[in-house]
Amino acid sequence: MLIHVSAIINLFILKYNSEGVDRKNIGRKKKKLKLHEEKQYIPRNKNRIMFLKFKKNKMAIVGLIIILLLIFTGVFSEFIAPHSYREQNLPLKNQSPSPNFWFGTDEFGRCIFSRIVYGARISLKVGIISTGISVLIGIIIGSISAYYGGFLDQILIVLMDVMWAFPTILLSLIIVAIIGASLNSVIIAIALSYWVQYARLIRGQILSLKNELYIEVTRSLGANDSTILWKHLLPNAVIPVLVAATLGMGNAIVLEATLSFLGMGAQPPTPSWGSMLSNGRTYLFIAPWSAIFPGVATIITVLGFNLLGDGLRDIMDIKMKE
């Protein structure tokens, strides 16, 4: 008893003290006093708060800048790339990086820098389209499963469990093997491999929102199922999915590179980063730059999406598994 009482007293002391002990808080408080921030205007608008939080999150801003640069590179490839991505120049094959060829040349004498610049377009295309499709499938199946429940829900849960058991690389490899290796089949394969995670996410969100009071009020006001689902539930459930999709785009780009590396993706002379790496592997000993730079480009891109996704998750204060 005595121990407990003293523990609770100590707890309060600790809590009280901890505000003083925390180095970070001290710094903030001093600043606040200096700037008279106690009377600072606190915006009521939710979007404005989000924007202010976003401005403070350096990682998210770095991520956003990387993605914007990537989009710029992808859109204006023709103007940025010094050479053509398909023009072969055999006398100049496997040259090391030089002022003329910044990242060297590959086994056909093509400029690796230019190919990476054009490759940004392909990575972006694959990332955006495949993630868009899988988010769409996920939202439709997840929300139907959660909202209607019952037998339909059971069937969809089993379907999601089955899909969940397949490792994504294997699943997309099989799908590409069925429909044939090309960039479009890679997009379809990635979309069909990744929708389950979005479906599970949106299902959980809607399940927890479904019993909220405002939904009951809406229903008693006479709204029908589709109005409730599309107008009242989804807009509130969709933000975690959008954050997951930002992270998912990074994954999709890696998966595209992996499939192309395995020879199951974009076919030559398409300058996909993955297929460039696949060729680079063959010439790893004599021309290591052809394996290094496309990989670095992939990493920076994926890093951009991961940084932005992480930042958005922190800003929106969303708890997500994995």
Partner: peptide, 18 residues
């Protein structure tokens, strides 16, 4: 950790090999 999440596995393999 962030790099670990972002680096494609096969590229890491190639670089370790190199």
């Amino acid at each position: 950790a962030l790099l670990g999440v972002s680096v494609p596995t096969f590229w890491l393999g190639l670089m370790l090999m190199l």
